[in-house]
Each structure stands twice: as C-alpha cells, then as structure tokens.
Amino acid sequence: MLMKIWRKFMSREVISYLIFGVLTTLVNWVVYGMMVKTGVDYRIATAAAWVISVLFAYVVNKIFVFQSYDMHLGFVIKEVISFTTCRAASGVIEMVLMVIMVSWLNMDEYVSKVLVSVVVVVANYVFSKLFIFRNSEEKPL
C-alpha cells in the first residue's frame, strides 16, 4: 500500500512539478524581496511577484511538467485562460493569507511568505492537474 502511494507521488510529473514549483517560488521570492528592499509595500510586492511568477510558471508547466505541446492558437488561448484563472484564484489565496499573517497576526513578512508559498504550490498543482493540463499523458523523460 505504501509503495503504491510512493510510486504515485514519485512520478516524473510530480518530481518535475516540485522542481519547477521551487524555481517558480524562487522567482516569486526574488521579485518580492527586491521590491520590499526598495521600499515597496508588501501588498504591492506580493501582487507583482505573483504576476511575474505566473508567467514563468505557465511556460515551464506547459512544456516541462505536463508536456502539453499542442500549440494550436485556440488550444493555447483556452489553456492560458484556464491557467491564469486558476493562478488568479491561488493569487487571491496568497494575498489574503499574507494580509492575515502580516497585518492581523503581526507575523514576520518572510516567515509568512514561506508558509503561504507551501499552500500556494499545493493548490497550484491541484488546479493544474484537475483543470488545466488534465488531458496531458504521462510521457517518459
């Protein structure tokens, strides 16, 4: 039973999603950190970091994680709209959680960012798997 669960979670798709999820998170943190260090309010920095990381995430998820190679314009438009809509939902989750943790609970901005990032990465995988790239087939590396 445990081996079956382990194999399910250690697929090429999950491993590559985690790798590119970490890279997307790093893009998000770097943009956020640079903006906060230059005096930008954490809420604006969170929003800007989200936009840039979504653009990065779409490309790497499409090509490397879910191996969605259909480049027909209609398909790509549908995929981009679905991806952006789901990421907007996770962006709202991120913004709400950051405001709750930083403004209401007086938690450190960076500790909050780490905790929120874990929630967002999991939510984004679920959204991608169920709503965006659901027709992708598992392909060998």
Score class of each variant (00 low, 15 high):
residue 8 K to V: 06
residue 108 D to L: 06
residue 77 I to W: 11
residue 116 V to I: 06
residue 113 K to A: 02
residue 100 I to R: 07
residue 52 I to K: 00
residue 72 H to P: 02
residue 41 D to G: 08
residue 5 I to A: 10
residue 90 S to W: 06
residue 79 E to Q: 15
residue 59 V to G: 07
residue 83 F to L: 10
residue 8 K to F: 09
residue 35 M to R: 07
residue 105 L to N: 08
residue 105 L to E: 09
residue 69 Y to Q: 12
residue 87 R to K: 08
residue 81 I to E: 09
residue 13 E to W: 08
residue 112 S to Y: 05
residue 21 G to R: 01
residue 90 S to P: 08
residue 97 L to R: 09
residue 133 F to C: 01
residue 94 E to Y: 05
residue 126 V to P: 00
residue 6 W to L: 12
residue 32 Y to G: 04
residue 103 S to P: 02
residue 127 F to G: 03
residue 94 E to R: 05
residue 13 E to S: 11
residue 33 G to P: 00
residue 46 T to D: 13
residue 112 S to L: 07
residue 46 T to Y: 03
residue 76 V to Y: 05
residue 89 A to K: 05
residue 82 S to V: 08
residue 65 V to T: 05
residue 36 V to Q: 03
residue 93 I to W: 15
residue 105 L to W: 15
residue 32 Y to L: 10
residue 138 E to H: 12
residue 132 I to V: 15
residue 137 E to S: 15
residue 116 V to R: 04
residue 50 W to K: 02
residue 90 S to K: 08
residue 68 S to G: 11
residue 43 R to C: 02
residue 129 K to P: 03
residue 133 F to E: 02
residue 102 V to R: 03
residue 30 V to T: 11
residue 62 K to L: 07
residue 104 W to R: 09
residue 83 F to Q: 01
residue 12 R to M: 09
residue 91 G to V: 11
residue 88 A to P: 06
residue 86 C to H: 03
residue 5 I to K: 09
residue 84 T to D: 06
residue 82 S to I: 04
residue 83 F to W: 04
residue 59 V to R: 14
residue 136 S to A: 15
residue 39 G to T: 12
residue 63 I to K: 15
residue 55 L to P: 01
residue 72 H to Y: 08
residue 135 N to D: 14
residue 17 Y to A: 06
residue 61 N to K: 03
residue 100 I to T: 12
residue 70 D to R: 15
residue 9 F to V: 10
residue 112 S to D: 04
residue 116 V to A: 03
residue 21 G to H: 01
residue 56 F to Y: 14
residue 92 V to L: 11
residue 46 T to K: 03
residue 94 E to N: 13
residue 4 K to A: 14
residue 106 N to F: 12
residue 45 A to E: 06
residue 89 A to D: 07
residue 119 V to R: 04
residue 136 S to E: 10
residue 9 F to H: 02
residue 9 F to G: 02
residue 119 V to N: 04
residue 21 G to F: 01
residue 25 T to N: 06
residue 108 D to W: 05
residue 19 I to H: 00
residue 58 Y to T: 03
residue 115 L to A: 13
residue 2 L to S: 03
residue 137 E to G: 12
residue 22 V to P: 00
residue 137 E to I: 11
residue 6 W to C: 07
residue 97 L to D: 08
residue 78 K to C: 03
residue 30 V to G: 09
residue 44 I to R: 12
residue 62 K to Y: 04
residue 98 M to T: 05
residue 80 V to E: 01
residue 105 L to R: 14
residue 127 F to W: 14
residue 10 M to S: 11
residue 16 S to F: 13
residue 120 V to F: 03
residue 92 V to G: 15
residue 60 V to N: 07
residue 134 R to L: 11
residue 31 V to Q: 02
residue 23 L to W: 04
residue 49 A to T: 06
residue 14 V to P: 00
residue 73 L to E: 15
